[in-house]
Structures are given as structure tokens and as C-alpha cells.
């Protein structure tokens, strides 16, 4: 088994789930976002998004804060330091896995 293949086995399964990967990708790219924005971007239902956010919050990858902007209630989500590090590690493994075969073919 090559090193890359062994690395693939070490992929973070919490992030690897497609819905959570979408959420993590959006939150990695921004400072913070609220529930409606995440729902619009991901296309997930409210229930689905809530449960995936709760799972990410349990892993301490996402910080969820209930706040107000004026009178408008906001549930603001952002990645924690640990979440950023885990996502970067996930991206590194995926990059190595997808770029390796491309280099081998060329």
C-alpha cells in the first residue's frame, strides 16, 4: 500500500461526509456566516443543516453563537481554530490523492 493510500484511510470522517464538507468549505472561506446563508449555499433542508451543524459543533469544529444584528436574530457560525486545522489537513490529503494520479499520467 502506498503512503497516499494509507493517508486516505486517515481522512477525517466527520468532514468527509458530503453535507458537512459543504458546510466546512463555506465556513473556511469566510469569517462567519448565518444559518440562512449556509442553507442557501448548501441547498440543505433546515433539519439536515441543523443536525450536521450540531455534529460539527460536538466535534468542536464549528462555533455556533446566537446573536442579534439590530432586531434581526442571527445564528452565526464560524470555524474554530481546531476546525480550520482539521479542514486544512483534510484538504492536504485530498490534494495529494487527486494530484498524485494526475502527475503519474503526465
Amino acid at each position: 500500500m502506498s503512503t497516499t493510500l494509507q493517508d486516505l484511510a486517515a481522512l477525517d470522517r466527520v468532514i468527509h461526509e458530503p453535507a458537512r464538507l459543504m458546510i466546512m468549505s463555506v465556513l473556511y472561506a469566510v469569517s462567519e456566516a448565518d444559518f440562512i446563508y449556509l442553507q442557501n449555499e448548501s441547498g440543505l433542508t433546515q433539519g439536515n443543516l441543523s443536525s450536521h451543524l450540531a455534529r460539527l459543533e460536538d466535534e468542536k469544529y464549528v462555533l455556533v453563537q446566537k446573536t442579534f444584528k439590530g432586531k434581526y436574530p442571527l445564528t452565526v457560525c464560524s470555524l474554530t481554530q481546531q476546525g480550520r486545522k482539521s479542514f486544512e489537513e483534510y484538504a492536504r490529503i485530498m490534494r495529494a490523492a487527486t494530484q498524485g494520479p494526475a502527475r503519474a499520467r503526465s
Binding site: A29, V30, S31, Y37, K69
Partner: peptide, 18 residues
């Protein structure tokens, strides 16, 4: 934020880019 809270956030949500 005061303006966006009345116009933008209720429609397309709140996001603060990096």
C-alpha cells in the same frame, strides 16, 4: 450592519467575508 440587517440579512442571510 444596521442597514444590512434590514435589507440583506433577512433575504440572503448574513456572511462576513475574510
Amino acid at each position: 450592519h444596521w442597514l444590512k440587517a434590514r435589507i440583506t440579512y433577512p433575504r440572503t442571510g448574513y456572511v462576513l467575508p475574510e
